[in-house]
Design a protein around this nucleic acid. Structure first.
Length: 516
RNA sequence: GGCGCCGUCGCCAAGUGGCUAAGGCAGCGGAUUGCAAAUCCGCCAUCGCCGGUUCGAAUCCGGCCGGCGCCUCCA
């Protein structure tokens, strides 16, 4: 509520309760729906790493006008629709590596509690029933508007057919009476269903308590959703609902060049200089910038997953500070994928040198950095500390990732300096230093929830035959080179390169990778 | 119109009063390599514009320009 960073002081020392507003399950999720979960997954991982006992709740809103409309259009029940979209959401979360959510409460599982909650608000005079509807009376809440920073008279409120039942247009529905054919539950005010905001007030309180620590959601939810939620909760029990509010920036659909909106006026300038109808049009969809959402028709997340590795998408979401908007484009994802190769190549290199898989390293073992007499060890512990400082500063994952790149460079340098890759039997203490430094990388990466599993092996081809064919060409090239027939060898290599196969000659043979 | 956010290297992106303005992608030079690839080393920005506060500002204040979000469903 202070609109500033504050030190974390949990309600209960050592424990942290987090509530993140989840999806209304009426359509397949798009990439925007993954932003909050990925960010809070990292937040939970970090707080857990720091020794807190964290409980994280993500609600599922499975009854709402939008579900009714969509289910009618498709001719299925809202339960069937909800189940289908929940399954889609869960699949997408799993792909993103978000597996730290403790509770997924559903609105329809908590109707009784919602009715109780509304009754209490009526009893306290903060809400009133009208023709089967129940509305929250914003005029009774002197604090209304404190979260989003707006004054009551600046709130328009929704008009429409219910306008005449409300005391003020800014009042919002806690309970909506059912029209014929609509799903409904019995209540003291007649058959109906919950309004949009009430489920979050109720379910957060049920699981995390009246006052909990962190409430999150997209920036677009600040008003009216969170404003109304705070109003309901705090009028109901008279205590603060959440101690800290974290709102993530929204995903912006970017153009092909990655230049979006205000990031560069040059694109706009150039456009005005170009005669209408000339080049620039290209791909109208890609030129458009703005928030993703149903109005923009963002692609289902499952489609995106077909084209890009999950880890690439996760990395994109963590590559800047969570409060800032994320500019999304195909080109951006390709750049991210290219930068990730630096890590993947190091992991393979580490395995060549030590015979041990990076992924087998113990993520918890990285913390022991005692000997700083060695230059590399000193650098590793310096970067580790900088990473943790960045995370302490409002979960600055963008800065933290920068430290990861510096860390991998320090480790590559160490391998180079001591020629560990060339040596038949590298000195044990050198290997120990390398292993120690690499386990720090593993430790820090696990906080971000990245590099947890090997990505599909970069060797190997689309199918077995491709792999065998490449292997055959590599063998032929090796024979040509053995005969000093470099011309033929290079022709094979260049030809493969044109097909997207890159060869790397090493002391112990030739390694190859396919870019797709 | 009201409320809020933002403008840092070709692109992405840290930094919000004082070390040489992180890091990535792209690019250039070098080491290495038969040549490459990979790796390492080096080079590559005075922070939208104007004015002010200050010993000192990308960082604070004011104005301007540009962009975005919310005010109606949206993570």
């Amino acid at each position: 509520m202070t609109r500033s960073k504050q030190p974390l002081e949990p309600v209960t020392p050592g424990k942290v309760g987090i509530y993140l507003c989840g999806p209304t399950v009426y359509k397949p999720s798009h990439i925007g729906h993954m932003v909050g979960p990925v960010i809070f997954d990292v937040i939970k991982r970090y707080l857990t790493y720091r020794g807190f006992d964290v409980t994280w709740v993500v609600n599922i809103t499975d009854v709402d006008d939008k579900l009714i409309v969509e289910s009618n259009q498709r001719g299925i029940s809202i339960q069937a629709l909800a189940n289908e979209m929940i399954a889609d959401y869960m699949t997408n979360l799993a792909a993103m590596g978000v597996d730290t959510i403790d509770h997924f409460p559903k609105a329809t599982d908590n109707i009784d509690a919602i009715i109780d909650f509304i009754s209490r608000l009526i009893d306290k005079g903060f809400a009133y029933a009208a023709d089967g509807d129940v509305y929250f009376d914003v005029g009774k809440d002197s604090a209304y508007g404190k979260l989003s920073g707006r004054s009551l008279d600046s709130v328009q409120g929704e008009g429409g057919e219910t306008a005449d039942r409300k005391r003020s247009l800014a009042d919002f529905a806690l309970w909506k009476s059912a029209k014929p054919g609509e799903p409904s539950w019995e209540s003291p005010w007649g058959p109906g269903r919950p309004g949009w905001h009430i489920e979050c007030s109720v379910m957060s309180q049920q699981i995390l308590g009246e006052t909990f620590d962190i409430h999150g959601g997209g920036l677009d939810l600040v008003f009216p959703h969170h404003e109304n939620e705070v109003a309901q909760s705090e009028c109901c029990h008279g205590k603060p609902q959440a101690r800290y509010w974290l709102h993530n920036g929204l995903m912006q659909a970017g153009g092909e060049t990655g230049k979006v909106g205000g990031r560069s006026t040059r694109a706009a300038d150039a456009a005005t200089e170009v005669p209408a109808g000339a080049p620039a049009e290209g791909d109208a969809e890609a030129q458009e910038a703005g928030k993703l959402g149903k109005s923009k028709g963002a692609a289902p997340f499952s489609e995106l997953l077909k084209k890009h590795a999950p880890e690439t998408i996760r990395f994109l979401l963590l590559s800047n500070h969570y409060r800032r908007p994320i500019y999304f484009s195909e080109q951006r994802l390709e750049e991210i994928a290219a930068s990730l190769e630096t890590f993947y190549r190091y992991f393979k290199r580490y395995e060549r040198v030590t015979g041990e898989s990076f992924y087998a390293l113990d993520a918890a073992a990285g913390s022991v950095t005692t000997d700083n007499s060695d230059e590399t060890q000193a650098e590793v512990s310096r970067l580790r500390q900088r990473f943790l400082d960045a995370m302490d500063d409002d979960f600055n994952t963008g800065a933290a990732i920068g430290d990861l790149f510096e860390l991998v460079r320090a480790l590559n340098k160490y391998v180079d300096q001591h020629a560990l890759e060339a040596a038949d039997a590298p000195p044990a203490e050198k290997l120990a230093t390398l292993q120690q430094g690499t386990s720090v990388l593993r430790e820090l990466a696990s906080i971000l929830g990245i590099f947890r599993q090997p990505v599909q092996s970069a060797g190997g081809g689309d199918d077995a035959l491709t792999g065998e064919l490449v292997a055959l060409l590599v063998k032929l090239r090796a024979e040509a080179r053995a005969d000093k027939n470099y011309q033929l060898g290079d022709r094979i290599r260049d030809g493969l390169q044109e097909l997207g196969v890159t060869l790397e000659d090493r002391a112990d043979g030739t390694e190859w990778t396919i870019q797709r």
